[in-house]
Amino acid sequence: MNNSDMSQSKLTLGPVMFNWNPDVWRDFYFRIADEACVDTVCIGEVVCAKRDPFFTPLIPEIIERLQRAGKEVVLSTLALIMSKRDLTSVREITAMEDILVEANDVSAVSLLKDRPHIIGPFANVYNEGTLEFLRRNGAVRVCLPVEMSLQSITSLTANQHDTEFEVFAYGRLPLAISARCYHARSHGLSKDSCQYVCDKDVDGMDVDTLDGDPFLVVNGLQTLSYSCCNFIHDLGALSAAGISRFRLSPQSWDMVAVAQCFRDVLDGKTESEQAEHILDDLSDGLTSSNGYLYGKEGMAFAAPWAE
């Protein structure tokens, strides 16, 4: 592993995907601005447009604070756009000038044409053909789909010097999005009358198998892994594969400390084994996973770094 290369790598804080209390949400970003060693911060509702009204009024203040702290700010768009309300949200964000926008669906890609922008992990960039097309359309950075293997990443990034590549490196994996709200359904409600019950579970609602094993979590329309994706041991391999940015996805535990762990490993100040212990403590022992990288099931925690 080449530590000097890794120290050049940047950290991105992904958008908060859960429906946190707006005050908690604002304070979270303020603390990130003041204390976290991340280079870029994504902000914006990516799961459900119904939540927008609670957060939109707070965004200008947060952007200002983040920018003052020297962070690059990125506005993320919704992953699934069906209604007029959804589309209005995307059009408003993509109409904003002087700020980078991350497209999480093709409608945002079309609205950002001929303007530098980012492709988010919810858009499907699996191969060179699509990458080349999106680059011509204006994409300068791509956060790859969560299910891509290291082998595919290596093939994709080869000879692509005009694009910055990012992977989802920490946090519960966003696995699916639906028109149906499973949070509402589990409370005997429908999406239209949801009473915003998704705010009850700050890291998602536990979904166990019939055997009682924790398996997934539900976050409104979104389904995520129960396990916490953790590439802390894989930063060297990913850097060698052309990845220059690592995305940390906000969870309710201390993300400032999580970011510090990743930064210290990238800078060669901490061994990944030690960092893993710290991360485990921060997440209260939540199961880790990185199987996708090694072409295995995403829920696996594979350990090729030890071989």
């Binding site: 700050v202 536990d206 924790p214 309710s252 997440s283 209260d284 939540l286």
Partner: peptide
């Protein structure tokens, strides 16, 4: 299985 001790599970806040 149960008597051998329940698996530690993270409590959601």
């Amino acid at each position: 299985e149960l008597s051998r001790g329940s698996r530690a599970r993270r409590s959601q806040s």
